[in-house]
Design a binder for these strands. Structure first.
Lengths: 220, 220
DNA sequence: AAAATAATTTAGACAAATCTAAAAATTTAT
DNA sequence: ATAAATTTTTAGATTTGTCTAAATTATTTT
């Protein structure tokens, strides 16, 4: 696998996140996300097309090629492994890991990344609950369902929390909810969308609809 | 502290290593070390001078300013901490850590570095035995004496091994010598410069003068 | 001390990644 | 279906770090 500049990697990674299952990415969208101007995006797309990492027809938007997808998964793997390392080993808070991982992800030594993975015990999810691709780019497709949409009495494992504000973090800590917490929704109150949940064998607690919307779970 | 590009950092770091206690660094010397051309060095020196990191008079060579020295110590701190991490935690071999650390050293988040330091237990020496600067740039001045010059019957701790070839590594492993090994020189043979040493309470072993010259020790 | 040699700097160019302003293509609205 | 608005691309400049070739300064030799 060849080596790409930090800048190229940022574009590739961002295209991966923006293009869903299908659907093309547009110039303005991407310019917004990588914090640059549309003209710069066009320039970069020409380059990435010439490297056969994106399919790109002027004015038509773009998608990653299979090769581009592989590169993207490699970058995402590095990013999420470093996030895991920062949170788990260096005791960074959830809302602090992303920024630093943005830099570490561009150190692309395969040996480093694979040894880091091993050192961390081959984690499947990063501290936000996003799945971590393995060496071959495979990862949990992790049907992560919003806790607000989770059915009653079905075992769940917390695997992701979006929007890591300090206030949210505090609340989660108080409710004893963290990545990996096993719980069940016991009751749903339509009036204010609040939920009653039970964490393992403990007494049920109530959480607000707003809080529930920040929590994603897997079937546990 | 401001942020510097990887390229600037490589120059700063290299000047630090080349300028001893006194003495100026010359353009050719530096060009050699950073693997570039003398003209490029001149360009960079103008820039670093304008940032007040080096003292530089055309044709006269250059030295780091006190500010430049601080920056250099920060880079060296990061480099050596990552080397320690790679060797200690990820089980890289001694001769593999340097290359990867060359990339990691440019990730300059202070929080990251200080937390890494803490995670590693505030190590004083990197895997090659070079002292690691602390947050304030202070480090062991580590009177590292060549084992060939060490007096007989004085306790020593191995703290550095230079020139990490695979062959050397193999030999050291066989003799059970590694960073931290406690030993004493029992006899010196002037004829071929070989030494008889005793590692802790074990039986004395003989090592060649050539090998002894690659080993540096502290008083233990 | 002048000539030869070596080291360093200047001048001008180039590639990567970005930008602004203007032009072209596409989409939306009438 | 044309006009208006939006999106995207092109053209030309800028910055950083590099290069080659030529000019300049310093050092060494004779």
């Amino acid at each position: 696998m060849l080596n790409y500049s930090s800048s190229e990697e940022n574009y590739i990674k961002t295209i991966f996140h923006l293009q869903g299952e299908d659907g093309n990415v547009t110039t303005n969208e991407l310019a917004d996300r990588v914090k640059t101007k549309p003209a710069s995006v066009t320039d970069m797309m020409k380059k990435l097309k010439s490297r056969k990492l994106v399919n790109y027809q002027p004015y038509k938007g773009f998608r990653l090629t299979p090769d581009g997808r592989k590169v993207a998964l490699g970058i995402i793997r590095r990013h999420r492994l470093w996030e895991f390392f920062l949170a788990e080993k260096l005791k960074f808070k959830w809302d602090e890991v992303h920024e630093v991982a943005e830099y570490l992800e561009h150190v692309s030594s395969k040996k480093l990344v694979d040894k880091l993975d091993e050192f961390l015990g081959f984690p499947k999810f990063d501290p936000h609950g996003d799945p971590i691709p393995d060496t071959n780019g495979k990862m949990e497709n992790s049907r992560q369902v919003n806790l607000a949409d989770w059915p009653v009495n079905k075992p769940a494992i917390v695997c992701q929390v979006v929007n890591q504000s300090t206030a949210l973090l505090e609340l989660l800590q108080h409710k004893k909810i963290t990545i990996g917490t096993k719980l069940e929704v016991k009751k749903k109150f339509g009036y204010d969308d609040s939920l009653e949940i039970r964490i393992q064998k403990q007494l049920p607690v109530t959480i607000s609809g707003q809080l529930a919307q920040t929590i994603f779970v897997n079937h546990g």
